[in-house]
Amino acid sequence: MEAFTTHTGRAVPLRRSNVDTDQIIPAHWLKKVTRDGFEDGLFEAWRKDPGFVLNQPRHAGGTVLVAGPDFGTGSSREHAVWALQNYGFKAVISPRFADIFRGNSLKNGLLTVVLPQETVEQLWNLAEGDPQAPVTVDLEQRKVLADGIDVDFDLDENARWRLLNGLDDISLTLKNETAIADYEARRPSFTPRTQAA
């Protein structure tokens, strides 16, 4: 996984709540068997509208997506995270994320930042007024900084540590081989098996 320490870029204001994963990447894109090439599928239906924020030249090249509450609801498709990353986003800010989406993001090094609705509105106004305004998402200090904005955000220490160091969860878990094998040895005999081991 790519490490995330701090990132400065321009914000893209997505004034919508309940942005579900079917909107982020529609189902027909999920037939791909790779992790890349999803950028054209990102918000595919909404991008048909020339007025959609991603189609506005003034917001081109933005890397911090700022959305309303309940971003990433719906399906578990990690393709939603890949699509945002393939398109160039490094961080997403929202007052509330769906659990699975948030977990998927953190595993891929896409930082999800929970900020209060007021700050989200401030960021929307800032980016709409001046699309070039820089926004910094600093994971080391756990802060979002922009013109007139200096707010702290929460992220649990363990997730932060893994992100800062770009650590691969599987390697970390495999260090606990003994604990896993011990657990396996104590499982009751009535637990189901799909086939002989």
Partner: peptide, 20 residues
């Protein structure tokens, strides 16, 4: 519960998941 593809790989490899 539902999991993402990175977690699918994690379970395939370790039969465990670190969970908040």
């Amino acid at each position: 519960f539902g999991i993402g593809t990175s977690q699918v790989e994690h379970v395939l490899a370790t039969q465990t998941l670190p969970l908040a």
